[in-house]
Design a binder for these strands. Structure first.
Lengths: 197, 197
DNA sequence: CACAATATTGAGCGATCGTTCAAGATCTTT
DNA sequence: AAAGATCTTGAACGATCGCTCAATATTGTG
């Protein structure tokens, strides 16, 4: 070894993530990335191989950040269900005002990727499955904690949360109606979650 | 007038719609369009002005088709709520096996368009508002027909249908789990729609 | 401090992008 | 059938795309 990279990989991934999150995979050019990261193409290609390779790491980076946010929301509330609601509120209405896009990057990628990028598409699907599994794990913990009946179908409920979250984010981008979204969140968590969803 | 266009505009719009629906706006090249329509660029640009101009007409074409499908579903069932459920089943699971994409073209466009194409984005939003309004109109008719209580908040319910439909279509693309989607549709229409959503 | 190894630089590659337009083909009108 | 208007054709424009690579700068090692 004789020379080491001067840029911070995580920092570059963060900047690339914000860019891809805002513009999407296809509409983001490698020159956009060069400008956002202040790197020359040679450095980017040495570190990530290709635009697709960078995007794949961006997907993982984004998913890990999301998982961390969810964990913090759960830990910051007294109950697990309250933590899940806090996560919905934070993601849809909350603090991260500087989020580049109303939509989840994974869903946005699921939308624009096709058979032309099979590896990125399957990776996106895997990461979305992981989100649903995370929801289910927390719901099972809520059952264990007595917040939900022991008969709760946590798999079905996790699916419902996933569907609702995706739908609400899309609705927010379509309408910008924050009050309506807030009402729908509260409605979702106020009623008996078990049988009605 | 001395010469008339030899291609059928609706037919070309249909082919372009399938193409954009499958690949999205950015990933569809004008040469893709030329190949799919068997038209030379001059003819396309004389008829539609630009790629964006064609896409704008495609959005309208798609939305009109969707409205017609919904109308037929409603008319084909005994009750309006049954018709809405039939529309959900048809759109998500149903006959159009040759649909180019699980997602709604409007939602897909809402996802990939940004400030770089403001006119297309606002047009997409308008067409999505129109879908929700159509849902609300049918729900009001359901109230009039006694299928729903007179106290029903049809606006809120139409929003819920919109959110659910978008979420379910995304979920289907993510997971390909048709049985789970079928269960969620039935669940949505089996329970008392009014207060629980 | 000299050397070897790695990183950075930026010009520029071939391919493809959206789009244009002169030339030729085809139609309606007279 | 001649004239005039419109449509179709396909080559090609400039811009931009993802990406490469020889030249240069920078580092750790002996």
């Amino acid at each position: 070894m004789a020379n080491t990279a001067k840029f911070d990989r995580q920092e570059v991934l963060g900047k690339a993530t914000r860019l891809f999150w805002r513009k999407g995979f296809h509409a983001t050019s490698t020159r956009d990335i060069q400008q956002a990261t202040s790197l020359r193409p040679g450095s980017i290609y040495a570190a990530f191989g290709s635009k697709s390779g960078l995007f794949k790491e961006v997907l993982a980076f984004y998913a890990q950040n999301g998982a961390e946010t969810l964990r913090q929301c759960i830990e910051g509330e007294k109950t697990i269900l309250g933590g899940l609601q806090a996560f919905f509120r934070y993601t849809l209405l909350g603090g991260n005002k500087d989020a580049p896009n109303e939509l989840c990057l994974l869903v946005k990628s699921l939308s624009e990727l096709d058979e032309g990028e099979p590896e990125l598409l399957s990776e996106t699907r895997s990461l979305l499955v992981a989100v649903e599994n995370r929801f289910r794990n927390y719901l099972e913990a809520a059952v264990s904690a007595g917040e939900l009946p022991a008969t709760t179908d946590t798999s079905a409920l996790a699916r419902q949360l996933q569907v609702k979250l995706i739908g609400l984010r899309s609705y927010l981008r379509a309408s910008s109606d924050r009050k309506a979204v807030e009402r729908m969140i509260d409605n979702l968590f106020e009623m008996p979650l078990v049988q009605s969803h």
